[in-house]
Amino acid sequence: MDSYQITITTQDQQQLAFACRGDQTLQQGAEAENIFLPSQCGSGVCGVCTVHCQSGEFDMRDYNSEALAADAAEQGDILLCSTYPRSDLAVSTPYSYDLIHFESLAQRQAEILEIKPINDDVVALELQLLPDAEDMLSLDFEAGQFVELGIPGTDITRPYSLANAPNWDGRLAFLIQLHPQGQFSQFLRQAKVGQNISVTGAQGQFVLQESSLAPRYFVAGGTGLAPFLSMLTHMAEMMDSQTVELFIGAKHEKDLLAMEQLTALQQQLPQLKIHRCISQAEHTWQPDADEWIGAYRQSVLEVMKQTLKTAAEPVDVYVCGSPRLVNGIVEMTHTVSPESQLFYERFTTA
């Protein structure tokens, strides 16, 4: 699909530009570049996003004449939410530049509160954000999103999912897989409590589909559990009663993370079912009778396959982990439960 250059001149004669594909509305194109122009309904009904097109070809459709009268349209007024570009466009807005919102990722400083080894390869990192220039303590993020953590004194940053829910006290929690050659891993091995590091974000589209009524199946591999800890804590705080099942994949029993925290979450989310799938379980692994509920000597892929085959309705499958796990679950879901929706995030090592 062709892409066009959209140039906007605001009432106070400031200019900005963005690219917009022919299958995107101008509003969608702008928002894809984090430019948020005043709008409301997004469906051609309210007229809030009216601007004036000075030059260029476009296709405007599915809008209400109450929102944009025929004579206004004839004179070149358009609705951003209903207009698809067919050439480069020059557009002027009836409002000033300061009414346009831009999302830029802020960089903040945070103090290391705790670095706690969970097992040989994973540490739990806890940070306390320092107030920003506006005196704000908290970080604006959605459960499931990630931030970039920076190594002090360098430009090196690495993305890590937040493992706690949005909060106001500026506390940020992470589960971090240590890699022998990883630069952030090496930094963490010698980092000290009280040291400051940079935090940039949050960002990411791996967030809860809050409006979906389908059961939520969370599939976690390794530290891919982190965003699910965030989502589950958020759900508990919201008293969200949506059906939710967590499938944790691990090679060995010792690789299971945050089990105490998950047990505590089950108290607040009575509907939460946890499935522990240990692909290479030791013979000595003997969960007691109660614990056998949701414990499998199988890979998470096998367990998910059986579960999806017998599911009564399409579900929302969320996957976070290694590319191998994510690809496996995505492929299998397409085959076994094609009507289910998939949301995933792959962890890469660096």
């Binding site: 506006e134 005196d135 704000m136 908290s138 106001w168 809860l208 809050e210 705080e237 008293m239």
Partner: peptide, 23 residues
């Protein structure tokens, strides 16, 4: 969906948010 709901007239989370935000 996904927006915090105040239960039992307890505004503590809202007040906490106000203290954390710049004003």
């Amino acid at each position: 969906p996904g927006v915090r709901h105040i239960q039992n007239d307890n505004y503590a989370p809202l007040i906490q948010a106000a203290k954390a935000l710049p004003g």
